[in-house]
C-alpha cells in the first residue's frame, strides 16, 4: 500500500517536527514546507498553529495559507487543523474583545474558556457519538490539550467530539474534507497516533 503524501504547512515557527514524525508513524510521507504550490498538490494538508488567534491568522495569510486552505476545502482536498490551526478554521476568534476573522470553514466564534484555571493544559477525555476520526479509540483514552480558547458546540453541518472544561467545547470537528482538533494528536501518545492513522487512512 502506498503512503499518502502529506504536507505540514510551515508558516511560522514552533515545533513541527513532532507533527511530522507522528504523521510518518501514522503511515504518511511527510514534507514540512512553506511552499504553497506543494501544499496545494499534497494529498493531505496539516495546518498547525500555536499562540494567539490573530497572530496565527496573520502568519497564515502572509504565507498564502488563507487561499490555500479555502481552495483545498472547496475542491474536497483533505485538511487537518491542529490547535490554533483548528481554531482559525472557524468564522472568527474573540481575544480580549478583539474579534479577528478566521477562514470561515466552520461556523462559530472561538472564545475564551470559562474555567477559572486557564490555560486548559493536560490530558482530558472526549465525548462523541462515533466520530470516524476517533475509530478504535477507547472512551477512556485521553488527549493532550493546551489552550485558553475554543469553539462551543453545536457546530452546524459538522460532526464533533466535545471535551468538558468549564463547560463543553469543541475538541474535534469534521466537515467534509476538513478535520480540526483542538488538542495535539501528535503529542497525545497512542490515542493521538490512532487518530492520525485514521486521518491518513482516509486520504
Amino acid at each position: 500500500m502506498s503512503r499518502p503524501d502529506v504536507v505540514v504547512f510551515d508558516y511560522g515557527s514552533g515545533n513541527l517536527r513532532s507533527a511530522q514524525r507522528a504523521l510518518e508513524r501514522a503511515g504518511a510521507d511527510v514534507t514540512v514546507t512553506d511552499d504553497v504550490a506543494a501544499a496545494a498538490r499534497a494529498t493531505g494538508l496539516v495546518v498547525p498553529g500555536v499562540g494567539a488567534f490573530a497572530a496565527c491568522m496573520a502568519g497564515l495569510a502572509a504565507a498564502g495559507g488563507h487561499t490555500l486552505v479555502t481552495d483545498r476545502v472547496a475542491r474536497g482536498a483533505p485538511v487537518l487543523g491542529i490547535c490554533v490551526g483548528a481554531q482559525v478554521m472557524f468564522d472568527a476568534g474573540d481575544e480580549h474583545g478583539v474579534v479577528t476573522g478566521g477562514l470561515g470553514l466552520l461556523p462559530g466564534t472561538v472564545t475564551r474558556l470559562s474555567a477559572e484555571r486557564v490555560p486548559h493544559m493536560g490530558w482530558n477525555t472526549l465525548d462523541h457519538d462515533g466520530l470516524w476520526l476517533l475509530d478504535g479509540v477507547a472512551p477512556e483514552e485521553r488527549f493532550y490539550f493546551v489552550h485558553s480558547y475554543a469553539a462551543r458546540p453545536p457546530i452546524a453541518g459538522a460532526e464533533v467530539a466535545t471535551c468538558d472544561y468549564g463547560g463543553p467545547f469543541v475538541a474535534v470537528a469534521c466537515r467534509g474534507p476538513l478535520s480540526a482538533t483542538q488538542f495535539h494528536p501528535e503529542k497525545s501518545g497512542r490515542a493521538g497516533l490512532a487518530l492520525l492513522s485514521n486521518w491518513v487512512r482516509s486520504l
Binding site: S114, W123, N124
Partner: peptide, 15 residues
C-alpha cells in the same frame, strides 16, 4: 483574586 478552582473535573494530574 477569587479562589482558584479546577474548571473541569476530568483533567488528569500530570506526572
Amino acid at each position: 483574586r477569587p479562589p482558584v478552582t479546577l474548571g473541569g473535573m476530568a483533567l488528569a494530574v500530570r506526572v
